[in-house]
Amino acid sequence: MSVPVSQIHGSKLNHLIFQIGCYAVLFLFLLFFGFPFYMMAVLASHTAPVDWSQSNPFLFGAHFIDNALALFHDLIFVRAILNSIVIAVLTTLVQIIFCTIAGYLFAKCEFKFKKLLFALIVGSLMIPVFLKIVPLYQMMVFLRWTNTYLPFVVPAIATPFGIFLMKQLIETSLPNALLEAGKMDGLNPYQIIFSIVFPVQKASIAVLATISFIMTWNDYLYAFIMLPNRESFTIPIVIQSMFNTLGGSSYGQLMIANVVTHLPILLVFLFASKQIIRNILAGSIKG
């Protein structure tokens, strides 16, 4: 907030008060948002049930390592981590490739039925997934794809959200001059995509990759329906089933599982957050 020159007398105090007020609000919400994550870590270090009249619930307990060992002793959980990683990475890769191609075609090429197709794809974003999940499950059973990675990887080829996102980003951030130059040099459309669009759009791809990784990693309902076997569980399902079987008896283990779930997401987020924000802004300013 810049202070107008005419108010400079006595306004320094006002300005200071304003600043302090701003910081107060920010710290209040910092606590508000940070608290659940802090409690997650704290509860992970206690054995449950804890009598809070005996120990302070806001301080770390002494059982963090015990809980972690007990958790990783459970082979289903280790298996679930691997499953989650494979599914998230494969899905993200497939989405990057096909959404970038489709986004580029929708943004920069003219072809028949382009408007209709794009309207259908964007329109399908509005319809909740629950409406299609029953027939989708029957299809997967019919194809014998349940308990495999295929129900995640194959539909990822056409992710409406990814196509929409890439179309918007490429439309605003890929200069037509580059494409013209490529055509002048005699590149065919495939070469244009792989030697111009992909390298130039690294930032957009990072945005898409982050979002799609986080969505796949956190996905519960779809994974729960498509993966009924214990060996093919992903992390959210394992946490849920642990919660059902253990209940409150070992909250510490549950919370460690939560901490472990968050680690890769936090890594991805920290790694790409600057790029995400920069790119969102680049798109919004130019558009």
């Binding site: 919400f29 910092l30 948002f33 940070g34 659940p36 994550f37 409690m39 997650m40 509860l43 986080i214 990693w217 956190n218 519960y220 959210p236 946490i239 849920q240 919660f243 549950l254 919370m255 939560n258 779930t261 968050h262 997401i265 936090l266 987020f269 957050s273």
Partner: peptide, 15 residues
């Protein structure tokens, strides 16, 4: 402030 956005529903629910 971004953190709740990137966490899974199940974890948050359990916490």
């Amino acid at each position: 402030f971004f953190m709740p956005y990137i966490t899974s529903g199940i974890s948050l629910a359990i916490v």
